[in-house]
Design a protein around this nucleic acid. Structure first.
Length: 261
DNA sequence: ATGGTAGTGTTACTA
């Protein structure tokens, strides 16, 4: 089974590319982020025609997460327990969606960007990550054998080598010690990144601006963290850099886990 | 030179 995550930066702008990629790669389950649409605007039909069921949550042109699966999609949950909100109404944003697909409990996650170290969005980001860690740790305590994937755009570059030039990130988000500690805290409770060792030295995101992709000035910020039982099933991984090429690409590329049956 | 692109939706905001 193949399980993937991909920040598509608008599903309506990218649907043909995403479905063509699914049909070409035969990926079984895909977590999507930044769909940028309401539920009633999601292009379900092309996915269904390709054999994928879709669960989606989106409330506006911002955020939006989905899961597409051709191995079933059960027990769909919008938001994780304890997920903090943001904004005047303090409502939870469309940044987390859980579903069980082919025996794997998959969460499609779009971690808040943070914007600036002094911005309230940054405190929100850290709060959001801490709450997710607490909740995810509870899932493993309840069932140590659970097969769980925390997959998405984490908006954190855990290592200095996960950005093209640390000097360009002086005082910026994505690389701060607090963000990196928040990310490392998931490993402390059992959620590992199985991709880094299999695919070292590759980015998952390149900004549209400033010729970042031609210059390979990117960031590694998209991850599929696995619970111990799911980690045991990982037999391969790839980062589909070619998806940043061609006509109308997303600024992120898919990260794929290959799982033993 | 303190910018540059892209998407959604509007005279801006997010990334």
């Amino acid at each position: 089974m193949q399980l993937a995550t991909w920040n598509v930066n608008s599903i309506r702008a990218r649907v043909d590319r995403v479905v063509a990629w699914l049909e070409r790669t035969r990926v079984d389950v895909l977590a999507l982020q930044e769909t940028k649409c309401r539920d009633d605007q999601f292009p379900y039909l092309p996915f269904e025609a390709a054999g994928y069921e879709v669960a989606h949550v989106g409330t506006s042109q911002w955020n939006g997460v989905a899961i597409a699966s051709k191995v079933g999609i059960d027990d769909v949950v919008v938001g994780f327990p304890g997920q903090p909100g943001f904004g005047d109404d303090g409502a939870a944003e469309a940044r987390a969606l859980g579903a069980t697909c082919g025996g794997v409990r998959l969460w499609s996650l779009y971690v808040p960007n943070g914007r600036d170290l002094a911005d309230p969005h940054y405190a929100y980001k850290l709060e959001w990550l801490a709450a997710l860690r607490t909740t995810a740790a509870g899932w493993l305590e309840a069932d140590p054998a659970a097969q769980i994937a925390l997959a998405g755009d984490w908006n954190i570059a855990p290592l200095d080598t996960d950005v093209w030039d640390m000097a360009a990130f002086e005082g910026a988000t994505h690389v701060s010690p607090a963000e990196r500690a928040a990310f490392a805290a998931f490993a402390d409770v059992g959620f590992a990144d199985p991709v880094r060792d299999l695919v070292p030295g590759m980015f998952t995101y390149w900004d549209y601006k400033q010729l970042r992709f031609p210059r390979n000035e990117g960031m590694r910020i998209d991850f599929a963290l696995t619970s111990p039982a799911l980690r045991e099933r990982v037999v391969g991984a790839r980062i589909e850099r070619n998806e940043r090429k061609g006509k109308a690409p997303s600024d992120h590329v898919p990260v794929v886990l290959e799982l033993a049956d």
